[in-house]
């Protein structure tokens, strides 16, 4: 079983919020997309959602879709008011300087082995 804490180092992640869930949230896979309704329709419970979107609606979608975390790729950051909402809703937010393609490749290697 892969947990959130196991992907932090390989994916060069900074934890923006939700540190307390790293040791308990299971990662079942990953999904990369920047169209919200598409994500709602396709992402599976427990998947890492990789995106370059960082508006407050991203948090609502992650809650609805029951993602294991939001992973902001390509050095995208999230402003404090949105992070506050993520804390409130219990969503972990990570960020990485890696391009989305690289992040997917590394995650697939971790989860599918």
């Amino acid at each position: 079983m892969v947990l959130l804490k196991d992907i932090i180092e390989p994916l060069k992640c900074t934890v923006l919020c939700g540190e307390d869930r790293l040791g308990t949230s299971e990662v079942t896979g990953g999904y990369a997309c920047d169209l919200l309704s598409w994500v709602i329709s396709r992402v599976q419970t427990g998947e890492v959602w990789m995106t370059i979107l960082s508006s407050v609606n991203v948090v609502a979608v992650a809650v609805l879709a029951e993602c294991s975390c939001i992973l902001l790729t390509e050095e995208v950051t999230m402003n404090e008011s949105v992070l506050e909402r993520a804390r409130e809703k219990g969503i972990t937010v990570l960020s990485t300087p890696l391009p989305t393609y690289r992040a997917c490749a590394i995650l697939a290697d971790l989860v599918d082995k």
Binding site: D34, L35, L36, S37, I40
Partner: peptide, 12 residues
Amino acid sequence: EMGFGAGMGLPN
């Protein structure tokens, strides 16, 4: 710009 507009809402 915020990620809406996929035209997937009603189908969802």
